[in-house]
Amino acid sequence: MWQLAAGRIAEPVEGRVTPEPIVAALTFFTPVGERELLVHSVEQLITRALKHPRRIGWRVHAVRLRADLESPTNRSWLANILLKDPTADADRIAAPLRTRLEQSPPTGAVERLALEFTAFAPGTTELQLFARDAQAAARAGQQRALQSAAREIRMRVKRSSLYHIVEVQPWSRLPERRYALIDYEP
């Protein structure tokens, strides 16, 4: 923090960003009333939602399950679960939903099920490592894309038209001395 305040570090400060809610939904061909089938579908939705790239590095803290009931009634069933211990384990997320489905099941056949992870907690050290790996992989992919784009531009216009903006004398009172361009070679 001191280095940042003293101007020795110029990298922008990036706050921790909590992922947007993750939704996985399923529409049944024919409305489903069997509890076992509903439980199985919920488990599938949890697995699908856990695989979402936005979830990497985060544990799930709150889950919402919504069931839209058969058309003529236009009713819905809702379960909001706050996990005491945030987790990325499908079984531990499914457990309280299973209990809710057993104790107070939907009052009609279900046409559509939507599962939403609404709140997250930072992952364990291991999960954070995976997240860093994922971010590194994303950066590597971005770098490859940049290299390929730069190569194509060089081939088309026969010279590099990509530049970095570098600070030269950012404190200067003369605007033209503050920054300069330098060839960008990704």
């Binding site: 530049y163 970095h164 903006i165 570098v166 030269v168 605007p175 033209e176 503050r178 920054y179 300069a180 361009l181 330098i182 060839d183 960008y184 070679e185 990704p186």
Partner: peptide, 15 residues
């Protein structure tokens, strides 16, 4: 930054 060493002879003025 691409971590390419900075070559001041290739600097171009901006603004």
């Amino acid at each position: 930054s691409s971590r390419t060493p900075l070559r001041t002879d290739r600097l171009r003025a901006v603004n």
